[in-house]
């Protein structure tokens, strides 16, 4: 399998792509932080945040709706937030008696629900934008510059590098299972639940031993090529004027959003 299937990086040229990855990480985290800081129901500030996001989409040459299209991933979690509507805060709007439980939606609960959804939706879009404009190795390098422990960043780098190799391994194992449990059309194939569990467990174990042994070979191959416990990159990653400028502009914008959010 090729990296493109999972990797969400968009090969484009733009001002955002060219920014130092550290700047992009800081701005993204700052944006998500700003969303978390905004009080419930501060719609103008949320709208302003969304405009900033649209602008960033445009500057990155992705098209205005790019992150919007991919932002539905957090939607299933909305189920959890629905119960916020029935928080015992604010005025009750109605009483729904379902027999076993009495549901009382409240106005403040409704505001909280929509605020949570908007915050989550904006934050997810920023994260999408970050990985769409930053190559993953650069992202890891940025985290290293931001003083994450090297052990951890190196593990993450290895994870990314071998994810695709092991995914291929999974597909081989799944193909082998399918080949061995063929069934006639219309008839159920495969065994009972216990058999399925045993098979899945063996597949996980098989995958484990294959991965373990592969990591041994990888390590020996890397040692013989001069590995010192650190992954290097060809990108120098130096902050230049435009990086600092973007950082300053973003900080100013986020401050503005906070001011708009808290003044009422």
């Amino acid at each position: 399998m090729h990296v493109d299937i999972i990797d969400q990086y968009q090969f484009l040229e733009s001002r955002i792509h060219a920014l130092d990855p550290r700047v992009k990480v800081l701005i993204s985290v700052g944006f998500i932080l700003s969303n978390a800081l905004l009080p419930d129901g501060s719609w103008p500030a949320f709208a302003l945040s969304w405009l900033v996001l649209l602008l960033a989409n445009d500057l990155a040459n992705l098209g205005l709706g790019f992150t919007l299209k991919r932002s539905l991933i957090a939607l299933p979690f909305a189920l959890v937030a629905i119960s916020a509507i029935f928080s015992p805060i604010g005025e009750p709007l109605a009483i729904w008696d379902l027999g076993f439980i009495k549901l009382v939606p409240t106005d403040a609960g409704l505001i909280r629900f929509f605020s949570i959804m908007v915050r989550s939706w904006l934050s997810v879009q920023m994260a999408i934008l970050l990985v769409a404009t930053t190559q993953f190795p650069d992202l890891i390098h940025a985290l290293e510059h931001l003083h994450l422990p090297i052990t951890l960043t190196t593990i993450i780098a290895f994870l990314f590098r071998y994810l695709f190799v092991l995914t291929d391994e999974v597909f081989r194992i799944l193909r082998a299972r399918d080949a061995r449990s063929a069934g006639l059309p219309g008839l159920k194939s495969g065994g009972k639940l216990a058999w399925r569990i045993k098979t899945t467990g063996s597949m996980a174990g098989q995958l484990f031993t294959r991965s373990y042994e592969r990591s041994d070979r990888i390590y020996l191959a890397m040692i013989s090529r001069g590995y010192t416990g650190r992954i290097r990159t060809l990108h120098p990653h130096q902050m230049d004027r435009s990086d600092w400028l973007t950082l300053a502009w973003s900080a100013a914008l986020l401050t503005l959003i906070q001011i708009v959010g808290w003044i009422r």
Binding site: T151, T154, I155, I156, A157, F158, L159, R161, Y162, L163, V165, L166, T167, E169, V170, I173, L174, R196, I197, T199, T200, M203, A204, L207, F208, S211, Y212, R214, S215, D216, I218, Y219, M222, G229
Partner: peptide, 20 residues
């Protein structure tokens, strides 16, 4: 470090194995 990296990839890949 390479071992843990590959093991992390293993966990990731193993999460694709689900059984009905």
């Amino acid at each position: 470090i390479p071992l843990m990296g590959v093991m992390a990839a293993f966990i990731f890949a193993a999460q694709m194995l689900n059984f009905p």
